[in-house]
Computed example of a mutant assay.
Amino acid sequence: MPSLKELRARIAGVKSQRKITSAMKMVAASKLRRFQKHAEASRPYADAMRRMLSELAAATAGQGELPRLMQGGSGSTHLVVLLTSDFGLAGGFNANLVRSVRQIVSRLEADGEIVQVLPVGRKGGDAMARLFPTKLVERLPGTAGREVHFQTAADLGARVTQMLEAGEIDRVTLVYNRFVNAMTQTPTEAPLVPLPVPENDNQTENTAQYEFEPDEGELLARLLPRNIQVQFYAALLESAAGEQGARMTAMDNATRNAGKAIDDLSQRYNRSRQSNITKELIEIISGAEAV
């Protein structure tokens, strides 16, 4: 049985941990409000751009050679871009994503594709280096819990676009956590290249007709790289909000558990102290009777 000194030390240690987790919870809650606002504001624009270009892909299907950013390459190399956090203490935020990527890689390889992985964020980089060292393209840093700037998404989009144009990859899929609320972040698989075609748009009567102004080549050369950047930016915002929500929930649970541990240790401390006092009283009374 621990001594009173050991119990006091453990109580003090848990109280110190509770202060830390409580502070981290408040910091995450403060960031969450700001990141959630940005993520929700980006959704209509990103969804509209994705829908427009998907309809454009359906309308131009079968019209000869199209840009690689629209139809992908003719090979079988598939790039999976994974967005995770740089830091832990966020519950299952990163573990759920890693589990999803393992399933995606297994499915793609079963379909005969050659998979490459591009992790963004230290946690994802560590996991991919451990699980798929031969498939790792490179490891890119995340946002480290700070504000997400569009330039970060632009740089990532430029890197992926360069790989597509160089023929290093043929298809691209983005995997990230979509923010639902502070307690729920949904691992999401979003195909970027080739552009997903809306269902039923292969029917002539349902396919939109487009006239290009300026010409088709110039317009697509501007829109397609921009779309990849916008989708990356929206996903980075979703991931940032989800990270703070997951961390706030995890730290709230940790703070509650620390409180329960303190109550349990305090109860054990009081019982031990009472037992020691009773033992000392019995010894004193026994000694007095013997005299």
Score class of each variant (00 low, 15 high):
residue 200 N to K: 04
residue 33 R to H: 07
residue 100 S to Q: 09
residue 266 S to P: 03
residue 134 T to P: 01
residue 6 E to Y: 06
residue 272 S to E: 12
residue 193 V to N: 03
residue 233 Y to E: 08
residue 95 A to S: 14
residue 126 D to Q: 07
residue 284 I to D: 07
residue 174 L to E: 03
residue 14 V to T: 05
residue 83 L to H: 07
residue 284 I to K: 10
residue 235 A to K: 01
residue 157 G to F: 00
residue 13 G to Q: 06
residue 72 G to A: 10
residue 178 R to A: 04
residue 71 Q to T: 09
residue 10 R to D: 09
residue 283 E to K: 11
residue 74 S to E: 13
residue 285 I to A: 10
residue 144 A to H: 12
residue 106 S to M: 13
residue 50 R to M: 10
residue 163 M to P: 05
residue 64 G to L: 05
residue 118 L to Y: 02
residue 34 R to P: 01
residue 247 R to G: 04
residue 170 D to K: 13
residue 276 N to H: 10
residue 14 V to K: 03
residue 44 P to I: 08
residue 9 A to Q: 14
residue 92 G to T: 14
residue 110 A to W: 15
residue 161 T to G: 15
residue 111 D to A: 07
residue 105 V to E: 08
residue 169 I to C: 01
residue 224 L to E: 01
residue 130 R to Y: 11
residue 77 T to M: 12
residue 103 Q to D: 07
residue 159 R to Q: 14
residue 91 G to W: 13
residue 139 R to Y: 00
residue 184 T to D: 05
residue 256 R to A: 11
residue 239 S to T: 14
residue 16 S to F: 10
residue 74 S to Q: 11
residue 67 P to H: 13
residue 145 G to T: 03
residue 3 S to R: 14
residue 181 N to C: 12
residue 184 T to C: 05
residue 117 V to T: 06
residue 166 A to I: 03
residue 86 D to A: 11
residue 90 A to C: 12
residue 280 E to G: 04
residue 262 I to Q: 02
residue 77 T to P: 02
residue 29 A to Y: 01
residue 288 A to L: 12
residue 41 A to S: 11
residue 64 G to W: 05
residue 126 D to P: 00
residue 235 A to P: 07
residue 251 M to N: 13
residue 92 G to W: 02
